[in-house]
Computed example of a mutant assay.
Amino acid sequence: MPTPHRTSLAEIIDAGRSLLESAGLSGLTMQAVADRVGVRAPSLYKRVSNRRELIALVAEATVRDLGDRLDAAVDGEPDPRAALAALAREARSFARERPVAFGLVFAPGVDVDLDPESLARASATVVRLAGELAGEERALDAARTVTAWLNGFVGMELSGAFRLGGEVDRAFEFGIDTLTGALARGT
């Protein structure tokens, strides 16, 4: 009779997400996850075939979580400029709470397989709002511009690269206002 599974895939992914933030990508190992969920490492292979799949599952969970939070941040906001600003603030908040996971999904040079459907779902709100501001024919271009600015700003903030003084929060709000205004004027 086979031994029962002592952990679930959801528990493995949750442990992986926690380890990612506390130990970085190099600390996200099958052994570390096994220790966290209280099983021996070989037991994980019943649910996850290898470390690469584990990293992909953690990244997928991150993308879904971020997408859900972005959707919730704009829920009920009829003004696309205000909604896009709320979305940007929520993405920044997410990045501050989960900087390593944010980097896993957005940093250049990180080789992780992400499901195209998950990415499309997580991106749907920013694409929709960008289309409302810049026009449907430019929706993807505008969404990419917003995402690039946001990722660049947050990346610099998280790495401590804003060294000239001044208020970073004020600069962020200036960026949101300028970007959403420019997109709206482009229609």
Rank of each mutant, 00 (worst) to 15 (best):
A143M: 05
G155S: 06
N151S: 12
L179F: 05
G135D: 12
E117M: 09
T125L: 10
G131V: 02
L133C: 07
D177W: 14
T147H: 10
F174S: 06
P116Y: 06
V146G: 01
T125E: 15
T147F: 08
F174I: 10
T178Y: 15
E137W: 04
V168E: 02
R163W: 11
D141N: 06
S123C: 09
L133W: 04
E137C: 01
E167Y: 05
E117H: 07
G175M: 11
A142Y: 03
T125V: 15
R138T: 08
T180D: 10
G152A: 07
E157R: 05
P116A: 09
G175C: 09
R163I: 15
A139I: 07
R138H: 14
A120C: 04
T147A: 13
A182T: 14
E167V: 12
V168R: 06
R121W: 11
L119N: 08
V154H: 01
L179M: 10
A161L: 15
A124F: 10
L150Q: 11
V168A: 05
G160D: 05
V126Q: 07
V126M: 09
G166R: 03
W149L: 05
L164A: 15
A182W: 13
E117G: 05
L183F: 06
G152D: 08
G165F: 11
G131Y: 02
G175F: 10
A130C: 03
A139Q: 02
F174N: 04
R163C: 12
A120T: 12
W149T: 01
P116T: 10
R170H: 11
A120N: 04
F153A: 00
